[in-house]
Write a protein that binds this DNA or RNA. Structure first.
Lengths: 233, 233
DNA sequence: GACTCCCTAGAGTATATACTCTAATAATAC
DNA sequence: GTATTATTAGAGTATATACTCTAGGGAGTC
């Protein structure tokens, strides 16, 4: 593999593991056992590395969210979109963590990310539209669908932050893809009230598969009777 | 005012304006025209300053989210909760921005924040329960209410990040409290499908007041026909 | 005046971090 | 083989940042 690609790969790996803020260019070079000079031969600066990684991320999600216009959507499609988006989120999970700071430091990235968000919101909205056409959910006004789509986006992009800050018992307890995908449960929760009678039960069954599991550690930690919120069932 | 309090006040101000990451203890001291030594006489380190600010934030939100158990909830109560929570979010807006990093650097804060989240989720859930009792929304199963509450929390705590990353046209364009409160529109969107016939119209009218306004600049920027998502109505 | 206690100044330090510069080596073209 | 280009090493640098240390001022008390 070319050094340039190795740098991108290692950077992504380290960013995901430790957070962009905690990974220096020297760390990346050391991790690859190359010199800092070598790294800076391939990339002008750290922002450039991050930008390249973003382009990959963008490409991946755009690929996933390509919506077929020649046929109706199915439940399988919907689940594929959800699974795929969370897979993408997982692979580039450092990105949404320090998003604000990353965008502050790079105009290009800021602009591109904004357009990326718009495309995603558009895609989500289109998916809902086609789901209504397919009779999976009740039709919604444009206005409601847009607002709903935005809420879906908010839940998707911030589910991980919630897990890392509010959920994980200790910083050592690292996140797993399985836990991340419990975000699908939350997204489907948004859809529940709109499901048609014909599909309601089927979707609820699918949703159940993603229901968050109580980590033993956490349950034991909380005083009896004080368990609250999403895990209190 | 005591120097200690001045430090807390200035820190909060600077953190909110520039982000915790971009504000050093030296900046804070300089901003107050005091010496670094003086600052460190009052606080052992930066984490301690942040922790103290968190305690204030926590106290404020706990105060806002105190739920009266001796009477039913009204629509006014609900709007008060929403307004208050977003006011709190605004006053301490630096906090959720760098949350993950802040928690990484302070065990105490991590633990406290987790309990704080649990209390908030509990409060949100209780509010929904009482709103159902008051006939504002249809009753929900415990499971659905918990999942809903968590979605409300996700939307509330991440609305600002969305505004700053995806919405604002330029980094120079600073956020206003009014824009932040458009998050209330998003939260009410979550409630829409559960509203009872008796209250539906009244809530929709309230919700309308928070509907995001299209900033002129933004509209002009986007190619015609490509406007998407939440602002495309 | 002298003592004490609280507060403050400001120079200084250890460490980190993004990035540069020069020289050398490997790969390729002719 | 030789010239050229692409790649790499590694020491080095400028700047920033969290934090320390010592000296001393001011106010109250006896």
């Amino acid at each position: 593999m070319k050094t340039r690609d190795k740098i991108l790969l290692s950077s992504l790996e380290l960013f995901n593991e430790r957070g962009e803020r905690n990974v220096t260019t020297n760390h990346i070079a050391a991790h690859l056992a190359i010199s800092p000079g070598n790294l800076y031969y391939h990339f002008r600066n750290k922002s450039d590395i991050i930008y390249e990684i973003f382009l990959e991320y963008e490409k991946l999600v755009d690929y996933y969210l390509d919506i077929p216009e020649d046929r109706p959507l199915t439940l399988d499609d919907m689940m594929f979109y959800l699974e795929s988006v969370f897979d993408g989120l997982w692979s580039y999970r450092f990105f949404h963590r320090d998003l604000e700071h990353l965008l502050d430091g790079d105009r290009r990235l800021r602009q591109d990310y904004r357009e990326f968000t718009d495309r995603c919101l558009d895609a989500i909205s289109r998916i809902f539209e086609k789901m209504a056409e397919a009779g999976i959910i009740e039709p919604q006004s444009d206005e409601l669908r847009s607002a709903m789509s935005l809420n879906v986006w908010l839940v998707i992009t911030n589910w991980m932050a919630f897990l890392k800050t509010a959920h994980a018992s200790e910083e050592s307890a690292n996140l797993t893809l399985t836990e991340l995908k419990q975000g699908i449960y939350q997204v489907l929760t948004l859809e529940v009230p709109y499901l048609t009678a014909a599909y309601r039960e089927r979707v609820l069954v699918l949703r159940e598969k993603y229901r968050p599991q109580l980590p033993e550690a956490r349950e034991a930690e909380l005083p009896v009777g004080k368990t609250v919120g999403w895990n209190a069932i």
